[in-house]
Design a protein around this nucleic acid. Structure first.
Length: 225
DNA sequence: AATAATCTCAACCGCGGTTTT
DNA sequence: AAAAACCGCGGTTGAGATTAT
């Protein structure tokens, strides 16, 4: 049959980590390295599930974490990456050394969304927002306006979208290596590739899209190997 | 100063793909 | 081949902090 369970769920702690738990986890990983989250808690003497240990390490305890405020450059990079690949936080984090996917996700939801809305840009489509007299500084607790990215979007979400037939909001991301040039779809003014509208000139856009994702080199700087 | 409203972010949950037995 | 756990991801929650009234 399958494997044995990773931990006895009845005997695991939940909620905020204590200093002692942090110390144990850090000490163990310093001594034995990352990986094998399944066996780590027991080996480290922690009453946590491996998943929780992994999360705590990656998002909080890792020594290479930057912490502190995001710079303007990081903001802009996140916005650009999000416009290309959407909510792929781990991919975005891979391009921001010292930042975690969770941190970026939180930062997006609390700061950048609002920043874009203030600029009159829809944070989902990255297109200019149509103002209907609604409050654009949507507090985070309110239900966000859900707009789908296209066919890949989950049914539940796309069902709430009013699709405009002449809009193409589809986003594509190339695999790390593409042998031949992917033809850039012909753009009609302001309606193609909504996610790429960042106020860049066409030539700039094409150039940046390749370079900052590392697609031109085939290398996606994926930290967590 | 007290209370309510809002914001922030660490942690949890559930899912999909992968790996192991 | 099938079943079950592992792993990593994105979405969501909720406690504590901060700000407004």
């Amino acid at each position: 049959m399958g494997r044995s369970p990773c931990c006895e769920k009845a005997h695991t702690n939940k909620g905020a980590w204590t200093k002692e738990e942090d110390d144990r986890l850090v000490a163990y990983i310093r001594a034995h390295g990352e990986g094998c989250w399944r066996s780590l808690p027991k080996a480290a003497g922690l009453l946590r599930c491996g998943k929780s240990c992994r999360l705590r390490w990656i998002n909080y305890l890792r020594p290479d974490l930057k912490r502190g405020n995001f710079t303007e450059e990081e903001d802009e990079l996140i916005i650009k990456l999000h416009s290309l690949i959407g909510n792929k936080w781990s991919l975005i984090a891979a391009r921001l050394p010292g930042r975690t996917d969770n941190e970026i996700k939180n930062y997006w939801n609390t700061h950048i969304r609002r920043k874009l809305l203030c600029r009159g840009v829809d944070p989902v489509t990255h297109r200019p927002v149509n103002r209907h007299g609604s409050d654009t500084t949507t507090p985070s607790r309110r239900k966000p306006v859900v707009v789908g990215f296209g066919p890949d979007q989950k049914e539940e979400k796309s069902s709430s979208v009013e699709w405009s037939p002449d809009l193409n909001l589809e986003l594509r991301i190339s695999p790390p290596f593409q042998p031949q040039e992917t033809p850039v779809p012909e753009k009609r003014d302001g309606e193609q590739l909504g996610g790429l509208c960042l106020g860049l000139q066409k030539s700039q856009m094409e150039c940046h899209c390749r370079d900052f994702l590392g697609l031109s080199t085939g290398i996606l700087d994926y930290r967590r190997q």
